[in-house]
């Protein structure tokens, strides 16, 4: 039958939009047309932050979103959107699919009556657009920056003012000085918003999101109603989307970066002192969240255990 797939992203966003279309087409092929997803762009049926609720209630069959959006309902979900100072794309996929992450993710989402899985990797983001140069951690004090979630909590530890302005007000606010900086996405997407016109410092690395996931979740009753073959088809296609997003996104960024540089933007890395200060503040935020939420602790412990084993072998083989 036909199933509704509500995306939290615009259909015209690079990578995120086409990935959903590719997902729908491949599932259709592999199931011989038995599962045909109709892809709805951001807000067409459900508002982006209400997709989880609506898929759980059965108004929509499946959601295409970012787990960080569920952090207001389940703080530990944020760790399946991205782990600040955490894994790169391959390590992240490895831990979630083969290191115990997915089981925890499904446990977190079970009360919402949906079954989640990673379905596309969001490669490392930029650190953000700044109107001022950041030379030392001191420069972060009093900085008005649009960033949410764990990243916002980390920055406020260093004296910045994280605020949550709607996307429509970012550009002018940067231009006028109402805002000093904003976190956004990776260069291909940032280019659409034209921030290079109003902020001249484009900082890396995306410490708050070394890599992230597009998440797919399906209403649990619908999921349980499918045959093993159909569920396997969906999961297999998601694995393909994981690789496809990495394959198309990384090399594609360079063109956007070149365009920014041509517009007079300095593309640079944060100084090491800033990165170290952020790393330290991140550890504090983790400690607070682990103390407040047992599930958050459980997820981080699972990741750390996996990470330790993974890194040791990687270190042995580093070239």
């Amino acid at each position: 039958g036909t199933y509704s797939l509500q995306s939290a992203f615009g259909k015209n966003l690079p990578i995120l939009g086409p990935a959903a279309d590719r997902f729908a087409a491949e599932v259709d092929t592999l199931t011989g047309g038995k599962i045909a997803f109709k892809h709805y762009g951001a807000g067409e049926l459900s508002p982006p932050f209400e997709i989880l609720d609506n898929v759980g209630a059965g108004a929509i069959d499946a959601g295409w979103s970012y787990a960080g959006y569920a952090a207001g309902k389940a703080p530990a979900a944020a760790l399946f959107g991205s782990i600040p100072f955490g894994p790169d794309a391959i390590k992240y996929v490895s831990w979630v699919l083969h290191g115990g992450g997915l089981q925890l993710w499904r446990e977190i989402y079970a009360p919402f009556n949906v079954v989640p899985m990673p379905c596309g990797v969001i490669i490392s983001e930029a650190g953000g657009w700044y109107t001022k140069e950041i030379k030392s951690p001191e420069d972060l004090k009093g900085l008005k920056i649009r960033i949410g979630g764990l990243g916002g909590k980390v920055l406020s530890k260093l004296g910045a003012n994280p605020m949550s302005l709607p996307a429509g007000e970012i550009s002018t606010s940067l231009e006028t000085g109402r805002l000093d900086a904003t976190e956004l996405s990776f260069p291909m997407i940032d280019r659409l918003l034209g921030l290079d016109k109003v902020a001249k410092h484009y900082y890396f690395p995306g410490w708050h999101q070394p890599s992230g996931f597009i998440e797919l979740y399906v209403n649990k009753d619908k999921w349980n109603g499918w045959s093993d073959a159909e569920r396997t088809a969906v999961e297999t296609v998601c694995s393909d989307i994981d690789l496809w997003t990495i394959g198309t996104a990384v090399a594609g960024q360079q063109e956007a970066l070149d365009a920014f540089r041509a517009d007079g933007v300095t593309v640079e890395r944060f100084p090491d002192s800033v990165i170290e200060a952020l790393r330290k503040a991140t550890a504090e935020v983790y400690a607070e969240n682990e103390a407040a939420d047992p599930m958050f602790r459980k997820v981080l412990e699972s990741y750390r255990a996996f990470s330790k084993a993974y890194d040791q072998y990687q270190a042995l083989n580093r070239l």
Binding site: L45, P47, F49, E50, D53, N54
Partner: peptide
């Protein structure tokens, strides 16, 4: 439920 969430969010 969906239209209620739209009333709220939009």
């Amino acid at each position: 439920n969906l239209i209620v969430s739209r009333i709220y969010a939009n």
